[in-house]
Design a protein around this nucleic acid. Structure first.
Length: 481
RNA sequence: GCCGCGUUCGUCUAGGGGUCUAGGACGCCGGCCUUUCACGCCGGUAACACGGGUUCAAAUCCCGUACGCGGUACCA
Protein backbone atom coordinates (compact mmCIF):
# COMPACT_ATOMS: atom_id res chain seq x y z
CA UNK A 1 0.00 0.00 0.00
CA UNK A 2 1.35 3.41 -0.93
CA UNK A 3 2.01 5.37 2.26
CA UNK A 4 0.29 8.58 3.19
CA UNK A 5 2.41 10.91 5.28
CA UNK A 6 1.50 14.25 6.77
CA UNK A 7 3.44 17.25 7.86
CA UNK A 8 1.33 18.91 10.54
CA UNK A 9 2.71 22.25 11.67
CA UNK A 10 1.04 24.72 13.96
CA UNK A 11 0.68 28.19 12.50
CA UNK A 12 2.05 29.79 15.64
CA UNK A 13 5.08 31.27 13.94
CA UNK A 14 7.20 31.16 10.83
CA UNK A 15 8.37 27.76 9.69
CA UNK A 16 11.25 26.67 11.89
CA UNK A 17 14.34 25.10 10.39
CA UNK A 18 13.64 21.98 12.44
CA UNK A 19 10.13 21.97 11.06
CA UNK A 20 11.50 22.02 7.55
CA UNK A 21 13.71 19.07 8.38
CA UNK A 22 10.69 17.15 9.64
CA UNK A 23 8.73 18.10 6.54
CA UNK A 24 11.65 17.05 4.36
CA UNK A 25 11.88 13.59 5.91
CA UNK A 26 8.12 13.17 5.56
CA UNK A 27 8.34 14.26 1.96
CA UNK A 28 11.35 12.13 1.13
CA UNK A 29 9.74 9.07 2.65
CA UNK A 30 6.46 9.65 0.83
CA UNK A 31 8.20 10.22 -2.49
CA UNK A 32 10.59 7.33 -2.09
CA UNK A 33 7.62 5.02 -1.63
CA UNK A 34 5.40 6.51 -4.26
CA UNK A 35 3.16 7.81 -1.51
CA UNK A 36 1.28 11.00 -0.75
CA UNK A 37 2.55 14.04 1.11
CA UNK A 38 -0.19 15.80 3.05
CA UNK A 39 0.00 19.23 4.68
CA UNK A 40 -2.32 19.64 7.65
CA UNK A 41 -2.52 22.87 9.57
CA UNK A 42 -2.93 22.27 13.29
CA UNK A 43 -4.53 25.53 14.32
CA UNK A 44 -6.34 24.44 17.45
CA UNK A 45 -4.61 26.89 19.73
CA UNK A 46 -6.56 30.01 18.99
CA UNK A 47 -4.54 32.19 21.32
CA UNK A 48 -1.17 31.53 19.74
CA UNK A 49 -2.28 31.85 16.16
CA UNK A 50 -0.02 34.02 14.01
CA UNK A 51 -1.79 35.59 11.09
CA UNK A 52 0.69 35.03 8.28
CA UNK A 53 2.22 31.86 9.67
CA UNK A 54 0.31 29.48 7.42
CA UNK A 55 1.24 31.47 4.35
CA UNK A 56 4.85 31.40 5.47
CA UNK A 57 4.76 27.64 5.97
CA UNK A 58 3.32 27.09 2.52
CA UNK A 59 5.78 29.49 0.91
CA UNK A 60 8.74 27.98 2.75
CA UNK A 61 7.85 24.45 1.70
CA UNK A 62 7.47 25.54 -1.88
CA UNK A 63 10.76 27.42 -1.79
CA UNK A 64 12.48 24.32 -0.47
CA UNK A 65 11.04 22.28 -3.29
CA UNK A 66 8.65 20.14 -1.25
CA UNK A 67 5.55 19.65 -3.33
CA UNK A 68 2.40 19.23 -1.27
CA UNK A 69 0.01 16.67 -2.74
CA UNK A 70 -2.87 17.45 -0.42
CA UNK A 71 -3.30 20.46 1.80
CA UNK A 72 -5.27 23.64 2.42
CA UNK A 73 -4.83 24.52 -1.24
CA UNK A 74 -6.70 21.36 -2.25
CA UNK A 75 -9.89 22.42 -0.51
CA UNK A 76 -11.42 22.58 2.96
CA UNK A 77 -10.66 20.05 5.64
CA UNK A 78 -6.90 20.42 5.92
CA UNK A 79 -7.06 22.91 8.76
CA UNK A 80 -8.13 21.51 12.09
CA UNK A 81 -10.20 24.59 12.78
CA UNK A 82 -12.42 23.43 9.92
CA UNK A 83 -13.00 20.04 11.48
CA UNK A 84 -14.28 20.86 14.95
CA UNK A 85 -17.56 18.99 14.42
CA UNK A 86 -15.59 15.83 13.75
CA UNK A 87 -13.70 16.14 17.02
CA UNK A 88 -16.85 16.93 18.99
CA UNK A 89 -18.45 13.84 17.56
CA UNK A 90 -15.50 11.66 18.47
CA UNK A 91 -15.39 13.04 21.97
CA UNK A 92 -19.01 11.99 22.36
CA UNK A 93 -18.09 8.50 21.28
CA UNK A 94 -15.34 8.35 23.87
CA UNK A 95 -17.67 9.70 26.53
CA UNK A 96 -20.33 7.18 25.63
CA UNK A 97 -17.89 4.30 25.88
CA UNK A 98 -16.49 5.53 29.19
CA UNK A 99 -13.02 6.34 27.87
CA UNK A 100 -13.37 10.02 28.67
CA UNK A 101 -15.09 12.19 31.23
CA UNK A 102 -16.10 15.76 31.94
CA UNK A 103 -14.08 17.93 34.29
CA UNK A 104 -14.84 21.38 35.68
CA UNK A 105 -11.70 22.34 37.55
CA UNK A 106 -10.60 25.92 37.49
CA UNK A 107 -7.07 26.86 36.42
CA UNK A 108 -6.42 27.78 40.06
CA UNK A 109 -7.52 24.37 41.29
CA UNK A 110 -5.26 22.69 38.74
CA UNK A 111 -2.34 24.85 39.71
CA UNK A 112 -2.87 23.98 43.35
CA UNK A 113 -2.95 20.28 42.51
CA UNK A 114 0.33 20.53 40.64
CA UNK A 115 1.83 22.50 43.46
CA UNK A 116 1.61 19.31 45.44
CA UNK A 117 3.52 17.54 42.68
CA UNK A 118 0.50 15.62 41.51
CA UNK A 119 -0.77 14.89 38.04
CA UNK A 120 -4.40 14.59 37.01
CA UNK A 121 -4.96 10.87 37.18
CA UNK A 122 -6.05 7.91 39.25
CA UNK A 123 -4.56 9.38 42.41
CA UNK A 124 -6.06 12.84 42.15
CA UNK A 125 -9.14 12.30 40.04
CA UNK A 126 -11.20 11.58 43.12
CA UNK A 127 -10.63 14.93 44.74
CA UNK A 128 -11.10 17.14 41.70
CA UNK A 129 -14.27 18.52 40.19
CA UNK A 130 -15.38 16.03 37.58
CA UNK A 131 -17.77 13.30 36.59
CA UNK A 132 -16.29 11.06 39.26
CA UNK A 133 -16.92 13.43 42.14
CA UNK A 134 -20.09 15.05 40.89
CA UNK A 135 -23.47 13.41 40.49
CA UNK A 136 -24.70 12.73 37.01
CA UNK A 137 -27.45 15.30 37.34
CA UNK A 138 -25.02 17.92 38.52
CA UNK A 139 -22.74 17.27 35.57
CA UNK A 140 -25.64 17.67 33.17
CA UNK A 141 -26.79 20.76 34.96
CA UNK A 142 -23.37 22.39 34.82
CA UNK A 143 -23.09 21.67 31.13
CA UNK A 144 -26.61 22.94 30.47
CA UNK A 145 -25.59 25.99 32.45
CA UNK A 146 -22.70 26.47 30.06
CA UNK A 147 -20.14 26.28 32.81
CA UNK A 148 -16.57 26.03 31.49
CA UNK A 149 -15.54 22.43 31.23
CA UNK A 150 -13.14 20.12 29.47
CA UNK A 151 -13.23 16.49 28.50
CA UNK A 152 -10.39 14.35 29.76
CA UNK A 153 -9.07 10.99 28.68
CA UNK A 154 -9.61 8.29 31.27
CA UNK A 155 -6.22 6.68 31.61
CA UNK A 156 -6.24 3.11 32.93
CA UNK A 157 -4.56 2.72 36.30
CA UNK A 158 -2.26 -0.02 35.27
CA UNK A 159 -0.90 -1.67 32.24
CA UNK A 160 2.11 -1.19 30.07
CA UNK A 161 1.97 0.52 26.73
CA UNK A 162 4.46 -0.63 24.16
CA UNK A 163 5.03 0.18 20.54
CA UNK A 164 7.62 -0.06 17.83
CA UNK A 165 9.12 3.13 16.51
CA UNK A 166 10.85 2.87 13.15
CA UNK A 167 13.69 5.05 14.39
CA UNK A 168 13.74 4.58 18.14
CA UNK A 169 12.92 0.91 18.17
CA UNK A 170 10.91 -0.66 20.95
CA UNK A 171 9.50 1.91 23.36
CA UNK A 172 7.65 1.04 26.54
CA UNK A 173 5.97 3.10 29.23
CA UNK A 174 3.68 2.42 32.17
CA UNK A 175 0.15 3.77 31.91
CA UNK A 176 0.49 4.90 35.49
CA UNK A 177 2.94 7.53 34.35
CA UNK A 178 0.35 9.21 32.17
CA UNK A 179 -2.15 11.81 33.26
CA UNK A 180 -5.73 12.24 32.22
CA UNK A 181 -4.94 14.33 29.21
CA UNK A 182 -7.43 17.03 28.23
CA UNK A 183 -8.95 16.08 24.89
CA UNK A 184 -11.45 18.86 24.42
CA UNK A 185 -10.67 22.32 25.73
CA UNK A 186 -13.22 24.63 27.27
CA UNK A 187 -13.32 26.70 24.10
CA UNK A 188 -14.61 23.64 22.28
CA UNK A 189 -11.38 23.06 20.37
CA UNK A 190 -9.59 19.76 20.64
CA UNK A 191 -6.08 19.46 22.03
CA UNK A 192 -3.29 18.23 19.82
CA UNK A 193 -3.63 14.69 21.05
CA UNK A 194 -7.25 14.19 20.13
CA UNK A 195 -7.19 16.10 16.86
CA UNK A 196 -4.01 14.40 15.78
CA UNK A 197 -5.29 10.90 16.33
CA UNK A 198 -8.70 11.56 14.81
CA UNK A 199 -7.22 13.26 11.77
CA UNK A 200 -4.49 10.73 11.17
CA UNK A 201 -7.13 8.05 11.16
CA UNK A 202 -9.61 9.82 8.94
CA UNK A 203 -6.94 11.05 6.56
CA UNK A 204 -5.71 7.46 6.33
CA UNK A 205 -2.20 8.41 7.40
CA UNK A 206 -0.01 5.33 7.36
CA UNK A 207 3.18 6.75 8.88
CA UNK A 208 3.47 9.34 11.59
CA UNK A 209 6.85 10.98 11.05
CA UNK A 210 7.53 13.85 13.41
CA UNK A 211 9.99 15.30 15.91
CA UNK A 212 11.16 13.40 18.94
CA UNK A 213 9.43 15.84 21.26
CA UNK A 214 6.28 13.84 20.56
CA UNK A 215 7.66 10.49 21.63
CA UNK A 216 6.44 10.83 25.22
CA UNK A 217 2.87 11.41 24.07
CA UNK A 218 2.65 8.35 21.90
CA UNK A 219 1.28 6.17 24.74
CA UNK A 220 -1.64 8.58 25.15
CA UNK A 221 -2.25 8.33 21.44
CA UNK A 222 -2.10 4.57 21.61
CA UNK A 223 -4.75 4.65 24.30
CA UNK A 224 -6.91 6.74 22.00
CA UNK A 225 -6.45 4.43 19.04
CA UNK A 226 -7.39 1.56 21.29
CA UNK A 227 -10.45 3.39 22.65
CA UNK A 228 -11.67 4.14 19.14
CA UNK A 229 -10.88 0.64 18.00
CA UNK A 230 -8.50 1.86 15.32
CA UNK A 231 -5.25 0.46 14.02
CA UNK A 232 -2.50 2.96 14.86
CA UNK A 233 -0.19 4.14 12.08
CA UNK A 234 3.49 3.30 12.02
CA UNK A 235 5.50 5.63 14.25
CA UNK A 236 8.82 7.26 13.34
CA UNK A 237 10.23 9.88 15.66
CA UNK A 238 13.00 12.03 14.29
CA UNK A 239 15.90 13.13 16.47
CA UNK A 240 15.96 16.82 17.21
CA UNK A 241 18.30 19.40 15.71
CA UNK A 242 20.37 21.11 18.37
CA UNK A 243 22.35 24.31 18.33
CA UNK A 244 26.14 23.93 17.99
CA UNK A 245 26.43 24.31 21.74
CA UNK A 246 23.99 21.47 22.29
CA UNK A 247 20.96 23.40 23.41
CA UNK A 248 17.76 24.19 21.67
CA UNK A 249 17.89 26.05 18.38
CA UNK A 250 16.33 29.29 19.54
CA UNK A 251 16.19 32.94 18.73
CA UNK A 252 19.07 33.35 21.10
CA UNK A 253 21.31 30.91 19.30
CA UNK A 254 20.34 32.73 16.15
CA UNK A 255 21.73 36.01 17.33
CA UNK A 256 24.74 34.73 19.23
CA UNK A 257 25.83 32.03 16.79
CA UNK A 258 24.49 33.44 13.55
CA UNK A 259 22.22 30.48 12.97
CA UNK A 260 18.82 31.53 11.71
CA UNK A 261 15.79 29.66 13.07
CA UNK A 262 13.23 30.49 10.44
CA UNK A 263 13.34 29.10 6.95
CA UNK A 264 12.51 32.53 5.59
CA UNK A 265 15.76 33.82 7.10
CA UNK A 266 17.79 31.32 5.09
CA UNK A 267 15.96 32.47 2.05
CA UNK A 268 16.65 36.12 2.90
CA UNK A 269 20.31 35.28 3.47
CA UNK A 270 20.30 33.84 -0.04
CA UNK A 271 21.11 30.25 0.72
CA UNK A 272 20.14 27.94 -2.10
CA UNK A 273 17.14 25.78 -1.21
CA UNK A 274 18.87 22.76 -2.75
CA UNK A 275 21.82 23.28 -0.42
CA UNK A 276 19.68 23.67 2.66
CA UNK A 277 17.74 20.54 1.77
CA UNK A 278 20.94 18.59 1.19
CA UNK A 279 22.38 19.78 4.48
CA UNK A 280 19.20 19.05 6.41
CA UNK A 281 18.86 15.61 4.91
CA UNK A 282 22.32 14.70 6.15
CA UNK A 283 21.45 15.90 9.63
CA UNK A 284 20.20 12.60 10.96
CA UNK A 285 20.19 10.58 7.78
CA UNK A 286 22.83 9.27 5.45
CA UNK A 287 22.92 6.73 2.67
CA UNK A 288 25.06 3.63 2.79
CA UNK A 289 27.38 5.19 0.22
CA UNK A 290 29.85 7.98 0.84
CA UNK A 291 28.01 10.46 -1.33
CA UNK A 292 27.70 13.89 0.28
CA UNK A 293 26.14 16.07 -2.40
CA UNK A 294 22.60 15.23 -3.39
CA UNK A 295 19.90 16.65 -5.57
CA UNK A 296 16.33 16.31 -4.39
CA UNK A 297 15.85 13.57 -6.98
CA UNK A 298 18.78 11.62 -5.60
CA UNK A 299 17.51 12.07 -2.07
CA UNK A 300 14.06 10.77 -2.88
CA UNK A 301 15.60 7.87 -4.68
CA UNK A 302 17.91 6.88 -1.86
CA UNK A 303 16.01 7.90 1.26
CA UNK A 304 14.86 5.33 3.75
CA UNK A 305 13.72 5.69 7.33
CA UNK A 306 15.84 2.82 8.54
CA UNK A 307 18.93 4.88 7.85
CA UNK A 308 17.80 7.70 10.10
CA UNK A 309 19.97 7.88 13.22
CA UNK A 310 18.31 7.89 16.64
CA UNK A 311 20.43 10.55 18.28
CA UNK A 312 20.11 14.34 18.02
CA UNK A 313 22.39 16.30 15.70
CA UNK A 314 23.98 19.69 16.13
CA UNK A 315 23.61 22.32 13.52
CA UNK A 316 26.90 23.12 11.76
CA UNK A 317 26.86 26.36 9.83
CA UNK A 318 30.17 25.75 8.08
CA UNK A 319 28.83 22.53 6.63
CA UNK A 320 25.78 24.34 5.34
CA UNK A 321 28.06 26.89 3.72
CA UNK A 322 30.06 24.13 2.09
CA UNK A 323 26.85 22.54 0.86
CA UNK A 324 25.77 25.88 -0.53
CA UNK A 325 29.02 26.26 -2.42
CA UNK A 326 28.63 22.81 -3.91
CA UNK A 327 25.10 23.49 -5.08
CA UNK A 328 26.02 26.88 -6.47
CA UNK A 329 28.42 25.05 -8.75
CA UNK A 330 25.84 22.51 -9.72
CA UNK A 331 23.38 25.25 -10.55
CA UNK A 332 25.71 26.85 -13.08
CA UNK A 333 26.41 30.44 -13.96
CA UNK A 334 23.18 31.35 -15.72
CA UNK A 335 20.99 29.93 -13.00
CA UNK A 336 22.95 31.56 -10.19
CA UNK A 337 22.97 34.89 -11.98
CA UNK A 338 19.23 34.68 -12.48
CA UNK A 339 18.69 34.00 -8.80
CA UNK A 340 21.08 36.77 -7.79
CA UNK A 341 19.59 39.42 -10.06
CA UNK A 342 17.01 40.83 -7.65
CA UNK A 343 19.34 41.30 -4.73
CA UNK A 344 22.05 42.78 -6.90
CA UNK A 345 19.58 45.26 -8.35
CA UNK A 346 18.40 46.10 -4.88
CA UNK A 347 21.92 46.81 -3.72
CA UNK A 348 23.36 48.56 -6.75
CA UNK A 349 20.47 49.61 -8.93
CA UNK A 350 19.67 48.23 -12.36
CA UNK A 351 22.37 45.92 -13.70
CA UNK A 352 22.33 44.09 -17.02
CA UNK A 353 21.65 40.37 -16.61
CA UNK A 354 24.56 39.57 -18.87
CA UNK A 355 26.82 41.55 -16.58
CA UNK A 356 25.62 39.71 -13.47
CA UNK A 357 26.26 36.47 -15.31
CA UNK A 358 29.79 37.51 -16.22
CA UNK A 359 30.46 38.47 -12.61
CA UNK A 360 29.21 35.09 -11.41
CA UNK A 361 31.42 33.43 -13.99
CA UNK A 362 34.40 35.51 -12.94
CA UNK A 363 33.93 34.76 -9.26
CA UNK A 364 33.48 31.11 -10.11
CA UNK A 365 34.09 28.52 -7.42
CA UNK A 366 34.90 31.22 -4.93
CA UNK A 367 31.24 31.96 -4.40
CA UNK A 368 30.00 30.42 -1.17
CA UNK A 369 26.71 32.22 -0.75
CA UNK A 370 25.00 34.36 -3.39
CA UNK A 371 24.88 37.30 -1.01
CA UNK A 372 28.69 37.48 -1.21
CA UNK A 373 28.13 39.07 -4.58
CA UNK A 374 26.80 42.16 -2.85
CA UNK A 375 29.39 42.26 -0.10
CA UNK A 376 32.71 40.61 -0.77
CA UNK A 377 32.40 41.11 -4.52
CA UNK A 378 30.66 44.49 -4.47
CA UNK A 379 33.60 45.96 -6.40
CA UNK A 380 32.22 44.36 -9.51
CA UNK A 381 29.31 46.73 -9.26
CA UNK A 382 30.82 49.93 -7.91
CA UNK A 383 34.25 51.47 -7.61
CA UNK A 384 36.08 50.57 -4.41
CA UNK A 385 35.65 53.25 -1.76
CA UNK A 386 38.78 52.30 0.09
CA UNK A 387 41.83 50.14 -0.35
CA UNK A 388 42.85 47.38 2.01
CA UNK A 389 45.59 48.93 4.20
CA UNK A 390 47.47 45.67 4.46
CA UNK A 391 47.32 45.33 0.71
CA UNK A 392 48.73 48.81 0.26
CA UNK A 393 51.57 48.04 2.56
CA UNK A 394 52.42 44.81 0.81
CA UNK A 395 51.67 45.58 -2.83
CA UNK A 396 51.68 49.29 -3.45
CA UNK A 397 55.33 50.09 -4.06
CA UNK A 398 56.87 53.43 -4.92
CA UNK A 399 56.47 52.88 -8.66
CA UNK A 400 52.87 51.69 -8.44
CA UNK A 401 51.19 54.95 -9.41
CA UNK A 402 53.40 55.36 -12.47
CA UNK A 403 52.80 51.78 -13.57
CA UNK A 404 49.05 52.07 -13.03
CA UNK A 405 48.84 55.15 -15.18
CA UNK A 406 50.93 53.52 -17.84
CA UNK A 407 48.76 50.40 -17.83
CA UNK A 408 45.63 52.53 -17.91
CA UNK A 409 46.95 54.26 -21.00
CA UNK A 410 47.56 50.95 -22.70
CA UNK A 411 44.07 49.75 -21.85
CA UNK A 412 42.52 52.79 -23.47
CA UNK A 413 43.93 51.83 -26.81
CA UNK A 414 43.78 48.06 -26.40
CA UNK A 415 42.11 46.31 -29.33
CA UNK A 416 39.95 43.56 -27.95
CA UNK A 417 39.32 43.99 -24.23
CA UNK A 418 39.74 40.35 -23.38
CA UNK A 419 41.89 38.29 -21.04
CA UNK A 420 44.55 37.48 -23.62
CA UNK A 421 45.01 41.07 -24.75
CA UNK A 422 44.90 42.34 -21.17
CA UNK A 423 47.61 39.94 -20.17
CA UNK A 424 49.94 40.48 -23.09
CA UNK A 425 49.62 44.25 -22.70
CA UNK A 426 50.57 43.95 -19.06
CA UNK A 427 53.47 41.64 -19.68
CA UNK A 428 54.80 43.85 -22.45
CA UNK A 429 54.61 46.85 -20.16
CA UNK A 430 56.40 44.99 -17.40
CA UNK A 431 59.18 43.95 -19.74
CA UNK A 432 59.58 47.50 -21.04
CA UNK A 433 59.83 48.85 -17.52
CA UNK A 434 62.15 46.09 -16.45
CA UNK A 435 59.91 44.85 -13.63
CA UNK A 436 58.29 41.53 -12.89
CA UNK A 437 54.66 41.12 -13.96
CA UNK A 438 53.64 40.82 -10.34
CA UNK A 439 54.80 44.37 -9.80
CA UNK A 440 51.86 45.49 -11.94
CA UNK A 441 49.39 42.69 -11.31
CA UNK A 442 49.18 43.14 -7.56
CA UNK A 443 48.75 46.89 -7.39
CA UNK A 444 46.35 46.71 -10.33
CA UNK A 445 44.16 44.29 -8.47
CA UNK A 446 44.24 46.53 -5.44
CA UNK A 447 43.44 49.57 -7.54
CA UNK A 448 40.56 47.96 -9.28
CA UNK A 449 39.00 45.95 -6.44
CA UNK A 450 40.35 47.48 -3.25
CA UNK A 451 41.45 44.05 -2.06
CA UNK A 452 44.24 41.57 -2.63
CA UNK A 453 42.01 38.54 -3.05
CA UNK A 454 39.75 37.48 -5.85
CA UNK A 455 39.64 36.13 -9.37
CA UNK A 456 42.57 36.25 -11.74
CA UNK A 457 43.39 39.88 -12.55
CA UNK A 458 42.72 39.48 -16.24
CA UNK A 459 39.39 37.82 -15.68
CA UNK A 460 38.55 40.62 -13.32
CA UNK A 461 39.55 43.36 -15.73
CA UNK A 462 37.77 41.77 -18.65
CA UNK A 463 34.58 41.51 -16.64
CA UNK A 464 34.81 45.08 -15.42
CA UNK A 465 35.26 46.53 -18.87
CA UNK A 466 37.60 49.12 -20.27
CA UNK A 467 36.01 52.24 -18.87
CA UNK A 468 35.84 51.07 -15.26
CA UNK A 469 39.37 49.67 -15.38
CA UNK A 470 40.92 52.85 -16.70
CA UNK A 471 38.98 54.99 -14.25
CA UNK A 472 39.87 52.85 -11.26
CA UNK A 473 43.54 52.51 -12.13
CA UNK A 474 43.90 56.27 -12.45
CA UNK A 475 41.92 57.00 -9.37
CA UNK A 476 44.04 54.65 -7.28
CA UNK A 477 47.19 56.23 -8.68
CA UNK A 478 45.86 59.62 -7.65
CA UNK A 479 44.62 58.56 -4.23
CA UNK A 480 47.49 56.30 -3.20
CA UNK A 481 50.25 58.17 -4.97
C1' G B 1 11.72 15.07 41.07
C1' C B 2 9.40 11.48 37.84
C1' C B 3 9.04 9.28 32.84
C1' G B 4 11.16 8.47 27.97
C1' C B 5 15.05 8.63 24.35
C1' G B 6 20.09 9.01 23.31
C1' U B 7 25.88 8.67 23.79
C1' U B 8 32.06 6.74 17.77
C1' C B 9 37.09 12.42 15.82
C1' G B 10 35.42 19.78 17.40
C1' U B 11 30.77 18.76 14.08
C1' C B 12 27.72 15.33 10.70
C1' U B 13 28.33 10.27 10.42
C1' A B 14 30.13 4.70 8.62
C1' G B 15 30.31 0.42 11.33
C1' G B 16 25.80 -3.68 14.48
C1' G B 17 30.58 -9.75 17.62
C1' G B 18 36.55 -11.25 14.53
C1' U B 19 37.72 -7.79 8.02
C1' C B 20 38.76 -1.65 13.24
C1' U B 21 46.42 -0.41 14.53
C1' A B 22 37.87 2.42 13.64
C1' G B 23 36.34 4.58 7.35
C1' G B 24 34.16 9.16 4.89
C1' A B 25 32.61 14.40 4.99
C1' C B 26 32.83 19.50 7.15
C1' G B 27 36.29 22.32 9.97
C1' C B 28 41.34 23.01 11.27
C1' C B 29 46.83 22.49 10.07
C1' G B 30 50.75 21.61 6.36
C1' G B 31 52.39 20.87 1.15
C1' C B 32 51.81 21.16 -4.24
C1' C B 33 49.64 24.23 -8.08
C1' U B 34 49.63 29.67 -8.67
C1' U B 35 50.00 36.99 -10.16
C1' U B 36 46.47 37.13 -5.11
C1' C B 37 42.32 34.58 -3.03
C1' A B 38 39.85 30.44 -4.02
C1' C B 39 39.36 25.70 -6.66
C1' G B 40 41.87 21.15 -7.31
C1' C B 41 45.32 17.50 -5.65
C1' C B 42 48.43 15.33 -1.70
C1' G B 43 49.26 14.76 3.44
C1' G B 44 48.22 15.57 8.74
C1' U B 45 45.33 16.38 13.47
C1' A B 46 41.37 14.04 15.99
C1' A B 47 36.71 9.55 18.46
C1' C B 48 34.28 4.03 20.29
C1' A B 49 31.45 8.34 27.77
C1' C B 50 32.72 5.26 32.23
C1' G B 51 32.32 0.60 35.12
C1' G B 52 30.86 -4.26 35.26
C1' G B 53 29.33 -8.63 32.79
C1' U B 54 28.41 -12.39 28.33
C1' U B 55 32.04 -14.49 24.76
C1' C B 56 37.78 -17.76 22.43
C1' A B 57 36.78 -12.61 20.68
C1' A B 58 32.93 -6.53 22.05
C1' A B 59 32.88 0.08 19.18
C1' U B 60 29.36 -3.80 18.24
C1' C B 61 25.24 -7.91 23.00
C1' C B 62 23.42 -7.28 28.49
C1' C B 63 23.32 -4.47 33.20
C1' G B 64 24.61 -0.23 35.96
C1' U B 65 26.57 4.81 36.37
C1' A B 66 27.49 9.51 34.30
C1' C B 67 26.22 13.03 30.93
C1' G B 68 22.97 15.13 27.10
C1' C B 69 18.23 15.92 25.05
C1' G B 70 12.99 15.56 25.31
C1' G B 71 8.36 15.22 28.08
C1' U B 72 5.82 16.17 32.50
C1' A B 73 -0.14 22.65 29.99
C1' C B 74 -7.42 23.69 28.64
C1' C B 75 0.88 24.73 23.69
C1' A B 76 1.74 22.24 19.79
Amino acid sequence: MAPRVRFAPSPTGYLHIGGLRTALFCYLFARSQGGTFVLRIEDTDRSRLVEDAEADIVASLRWAGLVVDEGPASGPGYRQSERTALYQDHVQRLLAKGHAYYAFDTPEALAAMRQDGDAYGPATRGRMLNAFTLSESEVTARIANREPHVVRLLVPEKGRIEFEDLIKGHVAMDAAGLDDQVLLKSDGFPTYHLANVVDDHHMRITHVIRGEEWLPSVPKHMLLYRAFGWEPPVMAHLPLILSPSGGKLSKRSATTLGIPVSVRDYRALEYEPEALVNFLALLGWHPSSEQEVFSMAELTEQFSLDRVVPSPARFDLSKLRWSNQQHLRLLGTAQVAARAADQVAKAFGPVAHTYVASVVAAVGHRLVVRSDLCTEYAYFFRDPALYDPRGIKRRWKADAAVLMRAYANRLETLGAFDEAQLESALRTLAKERGVGAGRIIHPARLAVSGTTAGPSLFVLLAALGREACVRRLRRAAAVLG
